[in-house]
Design a protein around this nucleic acid. Structure first.
Lengths: 201, 201
DNA sequence: ACCTGAACACCGTTCAAGT
DNA sequence: ACCTGAACACCGTTCAAGT
């Protein structure tokens, strides 16, 4: 009888597994049919769960969106972790730009804009993004400062300002690839970094 | 009888008037309740027309959105027309940035991101935006080139590249204001223009 | 020609019922 | 505890009927 009133805890890893299962399905559906166009029903079918089950793990479709949006940006920003080696900062930045643009290419191109659109109307997502962004900015500013101290670059701006300006340009260029799918965005970003950071050679 | 088969054309200005009436109402509703949150029913109530009437003038809600998005950008980009006076190019650019940021402030902050999100999945809007954007870029590049020829700036990049980079940074900074409502975006953009254009003094 | 408004289709979300 | 799936509420869009 106690066994009924206080049932043994079922698989404690189940919630995490279900979440992953749903997120995977959502990623698939968003990539296939676009971000707002994919329906909860489709996600459920792909994840093989009922709507009721989905809503047990996420409060709303927007939450799924937010989780995936954060993941997408985190993956693209992970490049910034490799920036500690101060020697070839500009090359490392160009590589980061390449990775960032690639992350939001093709079917995912709408995702970048959608993240901003969601953030503009969802304070919780905006806050989560801001936290992540602050970390990215700090890492970039730190890399610039170290390189400057080592004498390998002569930044035209304070490290924090240079970092913010570079990230803004990166974001803007990524968005603008929607209009003119210019293959030279990476080169342009590299050129900007070059002129803002003025490396030794 | 002919009068019935071929009725005299009613007020030929009516379609334009109705469109303006609906767009005004939509602008009001979007500003009040946000962009995706405003319903067609609300817009109809505000414009004092029935849904059927609205759909006579617009094929879909997305078209209303697109029309307003284009208008908003056009207004902000109109600043670029004042750029022909080559003497204080950097100051003029800073003023343009201020106007651009102001256009997408507060309730309209989501609008900027929504424009990009819509463009990413609506080729027609993307094309319209691309055309407008090309014109803006050309005007900016022209202003830079004239200033360079006059010897008042010494741009670090080719005019076209400088223009594209500046517009990308402008866009990115405008978006990033969603995260940190930094009041110094204008100053930062001015700093970037300064370093890319290197004015005489 | 232009409009109305009820009806339709669709989709995010909930909840009573199951195991 | 976890899940199902029918039902609900809402909203973009259409269309038969009016003038």
């Amino acid at each position: 009888m106690q066994a009924i009133l206080m049932p043994r805890a079922a698989d404690p890893a189940l919630p995490a597994r279900r979440r992953a299962q749903i997120l995977d399905a959502a990623r698939f559906c968003f990539a296939a049919r676009g971000f707002q166009h994919a329906t909860v029903e489709e996600i459920c079918a792909e994840a093989r769960v009922s709507p009721g089950a989905l809503y047990r793990y996420f409060d709303a479709k927007a939450d799924i969106v937010a989780a995936i949006a954060l993941d997408a940006r985190a993956a693209a920003e992970a490049m910034l972790d490799q920036l500690s080696a101060g020697d070839a900062l500009v090359d490392a930045l160009a590589e980061m730009a390449r990775a960032f643009f690639a992350a939001f290419e093709g079917a995912d191109s709408a995702l970048l804009a959608d993240i901003w659109a969601e953030a503009a109307r969802d304070p919780a997502l905006a806050k989560a993004l801001a936290t992540r962004d602050q970390a990215a900015r700090d890492r970039l500013a730190g890399a610039i400062e170290r390189a400057a101290r080592a004498g390998s670059v002569y930044p035209a701006l304070a490290p924090a300002d240079a970092a913010e300006t570079l990230l803004a340009a990166l974001e803007g260029m990524a968005l603008r690839r929607t209009l003119h799918a210019s293959a030279d965005s990476v080169a342009r970003f590299r050129g900007l970094a070059l002129h803002l950071l003025k490396p030794k050679r």
